[in-house]
Amino acid sequence: MRVLSRRKRIANGVLVAVMLLLSLLFLFPVVWMIANSFKPDGQITADMNSLSAFLPPALNGGFFDNYVTILTNTSFLKYMLNTLFYAAILIVLGIVVNGLAGYALAKIRFPFRERWLLIIMLLMIVPMETIITIHFLFVAKVGLLNNVIGYILPMIVNPFNIFLFRQVFISLLDDVYEAAQLDHCSPVKYFFTMVLPMSRSVVATVSVFTFLNVWNDYLWPSLVFTSSDLLTAQIGLGAITANENTTMGQTLAAITLITIPVIIIYSFFSKQIVEGVVSTGSKEG
């Protein structure tokens, strides 16, 4: 027994060491990016072959120059705010629309309910890129190109989110709905004042997924938007880095800025993300 537990301890130690090395491997470009985002181009080149490439420069008057330039001389701040605005709208609409669909699939009896669910599950395996042409043609046909509504409309319904909601709602007790009925609560009010608050975890998961989806999306906004007023952060980043006047340090500052929200979201909501993914597989019936 003692030998086994010692072996186990050694195995655990090796595992931790390997994981630490791996995480360092993954962290290396992030650390490099952040460290160099504070440097002028000359210093980046000079530090390239030394360990100082991974260290920020000394704190002086020009420390934040790259960031100040990106946020004041370009429209990057506006693009980030645009993206936040789109994400907020899509989170609200996504919760309402996908939540209602998930609730219907979980709790309301209607003909071919299981088949509908199957269709929605099948849609989950269709990559967005394969149907984006149809979305584009539809949005163009109804004259919504270069329009916020045209950008948002095809992104509201998300089969994965519907499935996620359905899996959580199916475990809600029917008794609570019946009690609410006797408490003069309408079905719509029940959904908003009972179902969603009782399922805070999945609401948080869907919100996080939606935010990350909107924040990281490049293809769809690049097709819909041409006006620079409406661009998202990712498209804006592309435009800024393509500009020959943008320095390497400024590019790295812009990339750092665009990465920060994602890191924050993952750090604060990692529990919800894991719960959300787990609930799709384990909470049947």
């Binding site: 007790l173 008794d175 609570v176 019946e178 009690a179 609410a180 408490d183 003069h184 805070r200």
Partner: peptide
């Protein structure tokens, strides 16, 4: 009015709010 086997209380509401909810509606 009905009392259920599994109580069917609203889990996100306090005792006071559970009791008042029907009256508010």
């Amino acid at each position: 009015s009905m009392v259920f086997q599994n109580y069917a209380l609203y889990p996100h509401m306090t005792v006071e709010k559970n009791i008042a909810y029907g009256l508010q509606n």
